[in-house]
Write a protein that binds this DNA or RNA. Structure first.
Lengths: 153, 153
DNA sequence: CCTAATTACTTCAAGCCTAAAATATTTATC
DNA sequence: GATAAATATTTTAGGCTTGAAGTAATTAGG
């Protein structure tokens, strides 16, 4: 294997390790301190950015998960009164999912705690470092997307 | 929220997006082209680094997953003849898990394909960039571990 | 020795996740 | 208008994951 290939593999393994580690801690924190899960948090986060609600298929699109997955999470959040399904006028197949007032309030608290948690976890990283690394990741993602578009044609 | 806090949150969201995206593609590739899954690959990878085998508890330790989780994955790999449970002499509670010759051969093929895949995915990243980013991640991880040790005391 | 605590592992219940099949509805074509 | 294709969602089967409970074996303290 070439040297650059080795360096890339090493980078990937480290990325995976760091992100998985943080994600695991985040799941623990959500469970212990907020009695929820990361997938539930992700759904509520997406809905909070669309106060008018999202169709089930839009939601699975932005979260990049399967339709059936969203159905289950929506069911459970719905049982707890945090989200509600609203029929879409003019299309009886579709359902709009949106946060209830209770869901909105709960998410606001969780989101603030989440930001504080991240800020604490990444305390050792300066603004400049954070921006530099984010820019690199952004460049990488943009480049990957371009490649996908090219392949799709 | 302070500016540095915003930059850190932004970095975290991008890290999560990039790593999740790559991980999802990796899962798809493993499923489509190798008829396996990432957890199975992880188990076989850990075992390949310990040809003499690992106790179930050691395995769940290095993979940072629960004991019950490893039991299930080992069961399925075992049914396919890729790993085997060997009793530990002198301790009838414990079991050593190790790759069978078939498992070793299969993993060798998958590991090579995996490295090629990563190298291709990260093609836009130079040796220098990869090393620089890996070093930063390493520094971050080391610092986090130190903090944990300090907290444990 | 004997009993209590610990250790190693498995089982269980519940949630997450996917691809594929099923259901219901809408849109397009003839 | 009838029917075929497409769309939106749910259901299903199977694997992954956890924490907690259960089982069996070992170790430690008396």
């Amino acid at each position: 294997m070439s040297n650059v290939a080795k360096d890339r593999v090493r980078l990937w393994l480290r990325l995976l390790k760091v992100v998985r580690g943080l994600e695991q801690e985040l799941r623990d924190t959500l469970r212990r301190e907020h009695n929820t899960t990361l997938p539930r948090f992700d759904v509520m986060s997406a809905l909070s950015r669309h106060p008018e609600g999202l169709k089930m298929s839009q939601l699975s699109g932005v979260l990049r998960v399967s339709n059936g997955n969203v159905t289950g999470i929506a069911d459970r959040l719905s049982e707890e009164g945090l989200v509600e399904r609203i029929p879409v006028p003019g299309d009886r197949r579709a359902m709009m999912l949106r946060l209830t007032p209770a869901g909105t309030a709960q998410f606001a608290r969780q989101a603030q705690a989440h930001e504080d948690w991240i800020n604490e976890k990444l305390r050792g990283i300066s603004s400049e470092e954070a921006r530099a690394m984010a820019a690199r990741l952004q460049a990488f993602a943009a480049q990957t997307e371009e490649k996908e578009k090219a392949n799709a044609q």
